[in-house]
């Protein structure tokens, strides 16, 4: 059964444990240690460090200050990362099959196949795959859903480490039911929307929040259909089109040849007279 993660940003305290645990498990350097001095440690305007997801940060905690009705400011924390779509755009566009969807949920990149075309970066509706721009032999990098931990029966490092249990690991459909139940039981605490239930046809990682998802930087313009279908509309017609063009061209050539030969024999016949 496909696994999932339910991220409850109401519980999140912004401790950044998941960001660190992720770096630790995946042996990722800090932003400042990346092999180029372009990557000096730096902060975003809201004091997150590094400023955004990058090829050395698969999990990034972001801070949002949102004014309440009474004028007070409320703080919200959310971590961004690849959502492991059920029908991933990135997998469908990769020309060499370097990105693959595992049956139990993870979408994983294979470094022996990728040739670095970056079509996945263009296609991902959430802009999640990141590229090592400063490397001569670059990789595409993103959250791996800790597939190698799942294989050993462990939960992902970020879920394991989260102190307030804001990242819950489990079967996707159970998590989805749990999310709806939690919203139903606490209507004053949660905004009634499970982000990831239908986005891009559904994702393995889902969010529930106190406010509307777009206020926390979640892209709500993402379509609800599965993305590979957009291209399939075009691709599925190709075999028929090839056959039609081949027949048309072959036919025309043959017909024209016969016509011209016919004409030629008529004229030469005339000349003979």
């Amino acid at each position: 059964m496909p696994k999932g993660l339910l991220i409850d940003t109401v519980r999140c305290t912004g401790c950044r444990g998941c960001q660190s645990a992720c770096k630790q498990w995946n042996l990722l350097p800090g932003w400042g240690e990346a092999p180029s001095d372009e990557y000096d440690t730096s902060f975003s305007p809201t004091m997150t460090n590094p400023p955004q997801l990058n090829a050395y940060t698969y999990n990034h905690v972001e801070f949002y200050e949102i004014p309440k009705d009474n004028g007070e400011i409320s703080w919200h924390f959310i971590h961004t990362r690849c959502l492991h779509c059920i029908d991933p755009a990135c997998v469908s566009v990769c020309p060499v099959g370097a990105l693959q969807k595992f049956d139990n949920g993870p979408v994983v990149w294979d470094q022996t196949r990728c040739f670095g075309c970056r079509y996945c970066q263009n296609a991902c509706p959430f802009d999640m795959p990141k590229f090592q721009w400063e490397q001569a032999w670059p990789k595409i990098q993103k959250c791996t859903f800790c597939w190698n931990r799942l294989e050993e029966g462990m939960e992902p490092a970020c879920a394991k480490t989260c102190p307030p249990n804001a990242i819950e690991f489990g079967e996707r459909d159970e998590l989805l039911a749990r999310a709806h139940e939690r919203i139903r039981n606490n209507p004053d605490k949660y905004y009634d929307y499970v982000y990831g239930e239908h986005e891009a046809g559904g994702t393995s990682i889902m969010y529930i929040n106190a406010v509307a998802p777009e206020k926390l930087g979640l892209n709500t313009d993402v379509k609800k259909e599965s993305y590979p279908d957009y291209t399939w509309e075009f691709l599925s017609k190709i075999p028929v089109e090839i056959a039609a063009i081949a027949a048309l061209l072959g036919g025309t050539w043959y017909f024209r040849k016969k016509r011209l030969e016919g004409k030629a024999s008529v004229t030469s016949g005339k000349e003979a007279k």
């Binding site: 020309p95 040739f115 075309c117």
Partner: peptide
């Protein structure tokens, strides 16, 4: 030149992924 890993440009010859338009293109 535009490929991140230029020498692997030949990969689509033996790595087939026919759902990808880029595969068609190559």
């Amino acid at each position: 030149t535009d490929l991140g890993r230029s020498p692997l440009i030949v990969n689509p010859i033996w790595m087939w992924q026919h759902n990808s338009i880029m595969f068609e293109v190559s």
